[in-house]
């Protein structure tokens, strides 16, 4: 763990831990750019395959664009989430993290934010491609779509990072992560698909979906940080 991150010493210890974990994870991902490129390419392939599987026409986008977009994001995101703790396996970093006196909610929080930023980056690059391939209607409210994208990605990143910390200990790690995350994320998925759908068609009135999504974000971020000790404890 390199430590020359510019974090002022007067910050409380947990804030420093948070910032270091975040900076280190982002640096690792950006330095070994292969994984990032592969993830991006994977998400692109999902969108391309969808357009073959479902005959991409604007009629389809009007009815199911939100769903297609989020399934692509979900699959690409799962790869990023799996890596969140997989990254710690070489050189016994995971044991180091768990043995360190650093506040575990801060460690988990740092990893949540780094997963969130990686996923958001990939999604923002894919969004214009989606708009082109699926002939999104001209009246789409892109600002609102990006708002939903941020809230929805946080929902997946916060819960997914927690489950990544859990599944890293198990057999069939890469398979178990979606098996834990998908059932939990169902209400969030309904909310983000429905609201994205409304905004892609240029509509409004998705207020209660946004509220539900934000509620999900708040509840599970708090719960994840509260239980960070449980999943990151030495054992």
């Amino acid at each position: 763990m390199s430590a020359e991150t510019a974090t002022p010493e007067r910050l409380p210890a947990s804030a420093r831990v948070f910032a270091r974990v975040l900076a280190r994870d982002l640096r690792l991902e950006l330095r070994g750019r292969e994984a990032l490129n592969a993830m991006l390419f994977y998400a692109l392939l999902i969108i391309v395959i969808f357009s073959f599987a479902f005959e991409a026409q604007s009629e389809l986008t009007i009815h199911a664009g939100g769903g297609l977009l989020w399934v692509a994001f979900l699959f690409a995101g799962l790869v990023a989430l799996d890596r969140a703790f997989l990254r710690e396996i070489p050189e016994a970093c995971l044991t180091g993290l768990r043995l360190s006196p650093a506040a575990r909610p801060a460690v988990l929080g740092g990893k949540m934010v780094s997963s969130f930023l990686l996923m958001t980056g990939i999604e923002l690059l894919l969004l214009p491609l989606f708009a082109i391939f699926f002939n999104v209607p001209p009246g789409a409210r892109w600002g609102a779509v990006i708002g939903v994208l941020l809230a929805g990605t946080w929902a997946l990143a916060s819960t997914g990072t927690f489950f990544s910390a859990m599944s890293v200990h198990t057999r069939y790690r890469a398979l178990l992560l979606p098996l834990l995350l998908l059932p939990l994320a169902i209400p969030a998925v309904i909310a983000m698909v429905q609201s994205t759908q409304i905004f892609l068609n240029g509509g409004s009135g998705a207020g209660y979906w946004i509220e539900l999504l934000l509620g999900f974000d708040v509840i599970f971020t708090c719960l994840g940080l509260l239980l960070a000790d449980v999943v990151l404890e030495v054992g």
Partner: peptide
């Protein structure tokens, strides 16, 4: 430990 955390989440 992991199971209990998951149960609370669910």
């Amino acid at each position: 430990r992991l199971a209990a955390a998951l149960a609370v989440f669910f």
